[in-house]
Design a protein around this nucleic acid. Sequence first.
DNA 1: TATTGTTATACTCTATAACTATA
DNA 2: TATAGTTATAGAGTATAACAATA
Lengths: 169, 169
Amino acid sequence: MSSPRQPDQSPGPGAPGPRGAAFLLAQIGAHAAALFAERVAELGLTPADVGLLRMIAGRPGRSQRALATDLGVVPSRVVALIDNLETKGLVERRRSTEDRRNHELHLSPEGRHTLTRVSRSAATHEDTLLAALDPAQRAQLTQLLELIAAQQELTPGVHPGYRQSPKRS
Amino acid sequence: MSSPRQPDQSPGPGAPGPRGAAFLLAQIGAHAAALFAERVAELGLTPADVGLLRMIAGRPGRSQRALATDLGVVPSRVVALIDNLETKGLVERRRSTEDRRNHELHLSPEGRHTLTRVSRSAATHEDTLLAALDPAQRAQLTQLLELIAAQQELTPGVHPGYRQSPKRS
DNA sequence: TATTGTTATACTCTATAACTATA
DNA sequence: TATAGTTATAGAGTATAACAATA
């Protein structure tokens, strides 16, 4: 960082602001999420949709309840999300023969195809976001982020944007 | 990461998932934002409140319109946010003598005091979040993040969480 | 007529709770 | 009685639009 503070005559909007890595992580993270949302919107999907498709692809046949638990959301929300994906023909609900209360979730062929398109979008997205860094720096960054993620016990592949919001007094 | 993939019998929720730096940035960023929100909630504030307090502290006397423009939100939202902060006695609205349509925004003494407490919270927050990294690694991370932020033209100190949401077809 | 701030309204998102069908 | 999924309802958050005061 070149100048640690610029009291009054600052060029920007004038936040005296936080300069730490924690703020940068939150700021860039939100920016990255917004960019990604724009990209997948071109495929008619929300980031939540993408997360669900990936979860189902990773473990076909799992129940909605299991999904809700893993994502940390309430079951009724999963219903709405899956409804949407089923309407688009990307996901199929199949009554379990073992326990007829369960719905086994599977990707349709079109769902799988969509997921590969998402992967291409994600690759382009990554390249755009990290344009400032050369390959060595990208590897370095990834390594540091993985250290943080592990220590903070973040579940690999699960974006915390699903979590149910805490009570506010 | 020890094992790059674990097809079916995985221990986690089983997302085949994204392993790139872009996803890690979004994931950790959201986590960081959530942790910070918890901390400032103890002071009776939301992250948006904190951002506003910082902006006002950085340029006392600015108008609500200016704030709305810089944050990228609609003026009516600034009204609600400032209402809240004024009720808590942290911010004062003063009719401008030059242009009586304007409200000049200032921090109250208590507002300034609250902001110093926020700074202490932020420092603790940063330390908790980056517990996995030693000082050299933290500096390295900060440097990489600043490169990204500059290239992506992110306004220093302004969290994108304010932006108005895009239309959804 | 244009602009600042405000109020009123509508819309979206998401959690809570009641309900059904299976077990 | 307990559980998976669904539906109905309500609450929070936020944008849009109409409005009052000032320029």
